[in-house]
Amino acid sequence: MEQATVKWFNAEKGFGFIERENGDDVFVHFSAIQGDGFKSLDEGQAVTFDVEEGQRGPQAANVQKA
Score class of each variant (00 low, 15 high):
41 L>T: 02
32 A>N: 06
8 W>D: 04
66 A>W: 12
6 V>W: 00
4 A>P: 03
37 G>I: 06
7 K>T: 04
55 Q>V: 13
3 Q>K: 14
45 Q>F: 05
56 R>A: 09
55 Q>T: 12
17 F>N: 02
37 G>A: 07
13 K>W: 11
27 F>C: 07
2 E>R: 10
9 F>R: 00
51 V>C: 09
29 H>Y: 04
48 T>M: 11
53 E>Y: 15
9 F>G: 04
28 V>D: 03
33 I>R: 00
55 Q>Y: 14
25 D>W: 12
17 F>H: 01
31 S>W: 05
18 I>K: 00
37 G>Y: 05
4 A>E: 04
28 V>L: 08
39 K>D: 05
13 K>G: 04
36 D>P: 11
50 D>P: 03
32 A>T: 07
45 Q>C: 09
42 D>I: 15
55 Q>G: 10
42 D>E: 14
53 E>S: 10
38 F>T: 08
53 E>I: 15
35 G>M: 12
42 D>F: 15
62 N>D: 04
39 K>R: 11
3 Q>W: 15
6 V>P: 01
15 F>Y: 15
52 E>Q: 12
36 D>R: 09
13 K>N: 05
47 V>A: 03
51 V>Y: 10
7 K>E: 04
57 G>L: 03
2 E>M: 13
11 A>F: 09
4 A>N: 04
3 Q>C: 15
32 A>D: 07
65 K>W: 09
38 F>K: 09
38 F>E: 08
25 D>E: 10
52 E>D: 06
25 D>S: 11
59 Q>D: 02
7 K>Y: 04
54 G>Q: 05
54 G>E: 04
15 F>R: 00
50 D>I: 15
38 F>I: 08
47 V>H: 01
19 E>V: 14
10 N>F: 06
46 A>T: 13
7 K>L: 05
59 Q>R: 11
60 A>D: 03
42 D>S: 14
39 K>I: 06
35 G>N: 07
56 R>S: 09
57 G>R: 06
54 G>M: 06
56 R>W: 15
56 R>N: 11
8 W>H: 03
62 N>E: 04
10 N>P: 03
41 L>H: 00
49 F>T: 01
3 Q>H: 14
21 E>T: 12
19 E>C: 15
35 G>D: 09
62 N>W: 08
12 E>N: 12
17 F>I: 07
6 V>Q: 01
30 F>C: 08
32 A>H: 06
17 F>E: 02
63 V>I: 06
11 A>W: 11
22 N>V: 10
34 Q>H: 10
10 N>A: 06
56 R>M: 09
39 K>T: 06
30 F>D: 02
6 V>M: 01
29 H>W: 04
64 Q>P: 03
9 F>A: 04
21 E>G: 10
14 G>Q: 02
37 G>V: 05
27 F>N: 01
4 A>G: 15
13 K>S: 07
66 A>L: 15
28 V>M: 06
50 D>A: 12
50 D>Q: 14
64 Q>K: 12
2 E>I: 14
66 A>P: 08
56 R>C: 14
52 E>T: 12
17 F>A: 00
47 V>I: 08
29 H>R: 01
